[in-house]
């Protein structure tokens, strides 16, 4: 089985979010970039397929040279090869077109993406890849088994979960549950050394188009101070009369 894991390179969850150039660009100053958490769960599941079922695992990112350390980290965790599609990705649809092209050319059986990237929160890239390549698609995927050409997946839905049956080629939008938090791996020295000599291919982008364009960013208005009360009666009254929340 050939697996492609799509890796979004995102600011660490503790990052302060600021903008520059008249609020038109994300300010990367002092920001630590990491593998998107949803993708880390997917990558770890892919490692399981590699170790238990002999799968080959490639990782891909659409982005500039600054994303290479994130791809190297994925190689250190155990991916076999990395691909960077060299373009500044600014819209989910255009990212999906690049990755769909890689998926088709590489003949991958399974494409693992995340439910959403924690930066732009698009939640669209994996579904678009599936639709563009004609693969089956399962979103909010919290469990995945593959046997030959058949896959069984569990998906989270509003108020519960459901078990689904499908076939390869398959694209998933994954999240925690694919593996547990405790299964995540921190690259060790050997992995880091090996990652240095693993292939990282740089490909030029195809068919660049932008269906959407971010014009300007804005930060939420600062919040007013909390109202502290010292008894539950006042709280209930405030929630009823002032906040009108009960």
């Amino acid at each position: 089985m050939k697996i492609l894991v799509c890796i979004s390179h995102v600011p660490d969850t503790t990052s302060k979010i600021n903008f520059t150039e008249g609020d038109t660009k994300f300010d990367t100053n002092g920001v630590q970039f990491v593998i998107n958490p949803n993708d880390e769960f997917g990558l770890t599941r892919a490692m399981w397929f590699k170790e238990k079922q002999g799968a080959t695992v490639h990782v891909a990112n659409v982005g500039g040279p600054e994303t290479e350390p994130t791809l190297r980290k994925a190689l250190a965790i155990g991916a076999d090869e990395a691909i960077r599609i060299n373009t500044v990705a600014t819209d989910g649809y255009s990212v999906a077109k690049q990755l769909a092209n890689v998926a088709k050319e590489g003949g991958y059986d399974l494409v693992i993406g995340g439910r959403e990237s924690i930066d732009y929160n698009g939640g669209m890239v994996p579904g678009m890849i599936a639709q563009l390549t004609g693969a089956n698609f399962i979103n909010t995927c919290i469990g995945l088994e593959v046997e030959g050409n058949n896959a069984t997946a569990v998906r989270e839905m509003d108020g519960g979960k459901e078990t689904l049956k499908t076939t390869l080629p398959l694209v998933i939008g994954g999240q925690k549950g694919l593996v547990e938090e405790s299964d995540l791996r921190i690259p060790n020295m050997r992995g880091i050394m090996q990652a240095r000599s693993k292939p990282l291919h740089v490909k030029e982008a195809v068919d660049i188009s932008n269906e959407t364009a971010s014009i300007q960013f804005e930060k939420p208005a600062p919040k007013g101070a909390v109202k502290l009360v010292d008894n539950v009666e006042d709280l209930v009254n405030l929630l009823h009369n002032e906040a009108k929340a009960i």
Binding site: T13, D119, S214, I215, F217
Partner: peptide, 10 residues
């Protein structure tokens, strides 16, 4: 965007 830490005008 950015998990409710900002908005984008798109």
């Amino acid at each position: 965007v950015f998990s409710n830490k900002a908005f984008s005008h798109t």
